[in-house]
Design a protein around this nucleic acid. Structure first.
Lengths: 151, 151
DNA sequence: TATTGTTATACTCTATAACTATA
DNA sequence: TATAGTTATAGAGTATAACAATA
């Protein structure tokens, strides 16, 4: 037969590799986050705020930002507060008066550029891969995001 | 010319993609961790402990475990305590009497099997990928880990 | 009734610093 | 002197629950 016996039951082929891939994604995600933090720290920006800033290329709903970052909306309220305190971003009213759009100030845009550059320069984990392999990886990750967002 | 101008300076080709890949790795890593947590929660195991258990296929030094998990050794002390409290693992003396090996008890091994099965089954993020693509991804991630461990 | 965002709060995760014991 | 592990503690990160306003 084509299945694998486990003490807990029977698993379809392909599932075991899924577990392996999950473990690797978590492990490498942690390392990537460490690199990312090291790139953002000199600019005085903690990781969650830096992640938000990079997503603010266009104005975006607080809720949409929460979804994109996989954060609870209540946490995004705090991030938006920090952006305003630092004059990096502001809330603007949407047409539906329940929603608030978040957008970067000129200072925020400038910081975002510096952040992008710093992150790209210090992406130690990724930088070791040969360019062609890096492109393959980007395509796979992009596919993964797209597949999940389709739900 | 072959370079890209940034407000902060000039960046070599390939670096920008590195930043993009870093961002994707963090984003997907978070989603993978959420799936992982959902798989471990029914077994009563928090994420950091679950990650440790999956790495304990063979007895391993506390320091080696810390490195593999990218945790500070002081944090691994706490994880080892939790394993012992739950009778899932124990510390055993090494030949060098400074080091302690961590190994799973029979209960720990049983739990590890169930954990592996549950994680594989509920790896929602990864499961959407076609098997061939999944294999490519695994190879790339494995390459990434190997490259970094070579330092 | 469902959705957006906010507040207050508490919990989980993780590192730092100072220490002990062994090498 | 350098390395493995521990202790105590503090800080960052994140979610939960209850709520207000709008749809």
């Amino acid at each position: 037969m084509d299945c694998i016996e486990y003490s807990g039951g029977v698993v379809e082929p392909g599932m075991v590799e899924s577990g392996e891939v999950s473990r690797l994604l978590i492990e490498i995600g942690e390392r990537a986050k460490a690199d990312f933090g090291a790139a953002a720290a000199p600019l005085g920006i903690p990781v969650p705020l830096a992640r938000a800033i990079l997503l603010l290329e266009h104005p975006i709903t607080m809720r949409a930002l929460a979804d994109a970052l996989s954060y609870d909306p209540s946490y995004v309220t705090g991030l938006a507060d920090q952006l305003e305190e630092r004059d990096l971003g502001r809330r603007v009213a949407g047409r539906d008066r329940r929603v608030k759009l978040l957008e970067l100030t000129p200072d925020g845009v400038a910081l975002r550029d510096r952040l992008e550059e710093s992150v790209a320069r210090r992406a130690a984990v990724v930088h070791r891969l040969a360019p062609a392999r890096r492109a393959e990886l980007r395509d796979l990750l992009q596919e993964l995001v797209t597949l999940q967002d389709a739900d």
